[in-house]
Design a protein around this nucleic acid. Structure first.
Lengths: 156, 156
DNA sequence: ATCCTTGCAAAAAATTTGCAGTTAG
DNA sequence: CTAACTGCAAATTTTTTGCAAGGAT
């Protein structure tokens, strides 16, 4: 069960305080001004458990560093391909006609990507089979015939 | 200018050969069966230059590891939240009405995210200012008043 | 010839983990 | 009490880089 520790509280406060989407280490620096003895690992751990719990959102598309969002309402983002900045976007439904909203935000050279998330048939089946625990599933790819056994790292 | 080396050719061939979206190290293993002496660094470098050149696509939303796509036609993806598998999706325009396409693919518990990419006003301005070279821009965030000077790593 | 590219090894960057001590419920 | 949590340090994982040698145009 999730405890509300002082560290967790401050991390959450700091994340919700800003309108941007900080990385774990930016958040660490922000939190550190209030909790000088906190460790980066604690920030990572808390961001993880809080996003698992649905209290915050993990933005996993940043490439190298994940970014985190204290705003869990359904909303979209625009990211600068050059500097990596992520802004919120007031688009509700997606059509080509929403272009002007992005233009208004001053962004140019706009491309978009729609991604879906879900549980694939294989994982659903496996979940049903051993429904007891939350054991993690190894990457199971449609091309596993090609990739099978050639993963350089063991499945944990 | 982009040279077509043997390594580059094989990497491209292997990436285009599979319908899935391998990580750099999966691709490394695939390529290694044909070029046993190739190095992982070469794979990384080639994936980078080729996606910069628009020959392939980088899927940056995977969280830890980037995935690469040999199919550069405009298309969307669905990713299993559990195993990380990424499949292609035959959705052209986005509406809530497309749900049945995803249902048909066997995915459940479907969520979606739309992300935009573009050049933010600040980067555009800076590009105009020193338009000579492709110098990289440091992260410039709307909340820079908050984050300023507290980035634990120097801007390269 | 030039300069892009390679393999190797080492470094850097990002994240996770083991552990012993601490704390919220 | 005790299971969840913390700080610290070390380990992993993922990606990048320096460099001398090689190769494409």
């Amino acid at each position: 069960m999730l405890r509300m520790t002082y560290q967790r509280e401050i991390i959450l406060e700091e994340l919700k305080r800003v309108k941007c989407h900080p990385t774990a280490d930016q958040l660490y620096e922000m939190v550190r001004t209030r909790l000088p003895r906190i460790s980066l690992a604690t920030v990572y751990r808390n961001l993880e458990v809080m996003s698992d719990a649905g209290i915050i959102k993990k933005l996993e598309y940043a490439g190298k560093q994940k970014r985190f969002d204290g705003n869990i309402e359904n909303h979209h983002h625009i990211r600068c391909v050059k500097c990596g900045k992520i802004d919120d976007v007031a688009v509700k439904t997606v059509t080509e006609g929403n272009q002007h909203i992005l233009d208004a935000a001053g962004y140019t050279d706009i491309r978009q990507r729609l991604d879906f998330y879900g549980l694939c048939p294989e994982c659903k089946r496996r979940e049903a089979e051993h429904s007891q625990n939350g054991e993690s599933v190894s990457i199971h790819c449609a091309c596993e015939d090609v990739l099978d056994g050639m993963d350089s790292k063991k499945n944990k």
